[in-house]
Amino acid sequence: MKFAITSKGDSNSNTLMHKIKMYLLDFNLQYDEDQPDIVISVGGDGTLLYAFHRYCSRLDKTAFVGVHTGHLGFYADWVPEEIEKLVIAIAKTPFQVVEYPLLEIIIRYQNGERESSYLALNESTVKSVEGTLVMDVDIRGQHFERFRGDGLCIATPSGSTAYNKALGGAIIHPAIPAIQLTEIASINNRVFRTVGSPLILPGHHTCTLKPVNQTDFHVTIDHLTLLHKDVKSLQFRVADNMIRFARFRPFPFWKRVHDSFISNS
């Protein structure tokens, strides 16, 4: 089996990364940063997001596993004290693969420039470069509403516990192939109205945002912030691709939610 390791970059994470690499090499596994079968992320959820984007071109061939060196993560389920167990599991145990839905973003341009396509593990947001964001929201090709406000967030089920939750969105189990559209500080008065609630769209529905009076936008793809100019439309849907996590033991989603937001321990 071929493996690669990504680190948060702090001294603790780097020390663990070198230790894991040494152990796995001792088990005669092959270190391969270009075509790994498994990627071990050492740090936190942000580190795993970086790893996902680094290897998003080979999602059907690479599985991910996380070791968290800070707070408990939604993607990083092993702690530093367990790395010997993890190494033995990777070297000796066929792992179970758990797949989570991803968000596909396609940005089209007014000048006929080639469209841009992205995958997000957590979410994508759209905000105006300057002033209020004004967007026509189409669902399945039909006009739904004209949004005015600070921005819009489109999240995956696994990303529903991140920025989406802070915006008042619902927490969705990642076994459900869906995306969620959540408003960021919408303007609602006697003149302007939006639905005012998060929208959960199933896998066969597409959400398209069409600019009304501006064409330049800040678009985030997980941790990346990009400036797109002369935008004609932004299309969001559940991606055909999925991320694959290597599971060597149960890691129940609702327990992660409880431990992250409710438990005091």
Score class of each variant (00 low, 15 high):
Gly151His: 09
His71Pro: 15
Thr62Asp: 11
Leu152Ala: 13
Leu49Gly: 01
Gly168Thr: 12
Ser124Gly: 00
Glu104Ala: 13
Thr69Leu: 00
Asn164Tyr: 01
Leu167Val: 01
Val129Thr: 11
Gly131Trp: 09
Arg148Tyr: 08
Val129His: 12
Thr161Gly: 01
Val67Glu: 10
Asp77Gly: 14
Arg148Ile: 10
Tyr109Asn: 07
Val137His: 10
Thr156Ser: 01
Val97Gly: 15
Ile154Pro: 12
Val129Trp: 06
Ile88Thr: 09
Gln110Phe: 07
Gln96Tyr: 14
Asn164Glu: 12
Gln110Asn: 02
Ser57Arg: 11
Tyr118Pro: 02
Glu123Pro: 01
Ala63His: 02
Thr47Ala: 05
Glu113Thr: 13
Val134Lys: 04
Ala89Gly: 10
Ile107Ala: 09
Leu86Phe: 06
Gly149Glu: 15
Gly73Thr: 04
Glu145Gln: 04
Leu102Thr: 01
Ala63Gln: 04
Ala63Tyr: 00
Gly169Pro: 02
Thr62Cys: 04
Glu113Ser: 13
Gly46Tyr: 03
Ala166Ser: 15
Thr62Pro: 14
Cys153Gln: 08
Lys127Gln: 13
Lys127Trp: 05
Lys127Cys: 13
Asn122Phe: 01
Val87Pro: 09
Lys61Glu: 15
Gln96Val: 15
Thr47Leu: 00
Leu119Phe: 07
Thr62Arg: 03
Leu133Trp: 03
Thr125His: 05
Gln96Thr: 15
Gly141Asn: 01
Val134Asn: 09
Lys92Leu: 12
Leu72Glu: 11
Arg146Thr: 08
Gly168Gln: 13
Pro101Leu: 08
Gly46Pro: 00
Arg54Asn: 13
Glu123Cys: 03
Thr156Ile: 04
Val67Ala: 14
Arg58Asp: 10
Gly141Tyr: 00
Arg58Pro: 07
Leu86Cys: 03
Lys165Leu: 15
Ile83Cys: 14
Ser124Lys: 02
Val134Cys: 15
Asp150Ile: 10
Asn164Thr: 09
Arg108Ala: 02
Phe95Asp: 11
Ile106Cys: 05
Asp60Ile: 10
Ile105Ala: 08
Asp138Leu: 12
Thr161Met: 00
Ser57Pro: 06
Gly73Asp: 07
Phe95Val: 13
Ile139His: 04
Tyr75Asp: 01
Ala166Val: 06
Asp60Lys: 13
Glu115Asn: 07
Arg114Asp: 11
Ile107Val: 10
Leu72Lys: 08
Glu145Pro: 03
Tyr118Asn: 02
Leu133Ser: 06
Leu152Ser: 11
Ala76Tyr: 09
Asn164His: 06
Cys56Arg: 07
Leu48Asn: 00
Ser57Phe: 07
Tyr118Phe: 08
Lys85Arg: 14
Leu121Val: 01
Ser116Gln: 12
Gly149Trp: 12
Ala51Thr: 00
Leu59Glu: 03
Met135Gly: 06
Val126Gln: 02
Ile105Asn: 04
Pro80Ser: 09
Tyr100Trp: 14
Thr132Met: 15
Ser160Arg: 06
Glu99Met: 15
Leu152Arg: 12
Pro101Glu: 06
Ala76Asp: 11
Arg148Cys: 08
Ser117Pro: 13
Leu121Thr: 00
Arg148Leu: 12
Arg54Thr: 01
Ala51Gln: 00
Leu86His: 03
Ser57Thr: 13
Leu86Asn: 09
Arg108Thr: 09
Lys127Tyr: 05
Ile90Arg: 03
Ala162Tyr: 00
Ala91Cys: 03
Val126Trp: 00
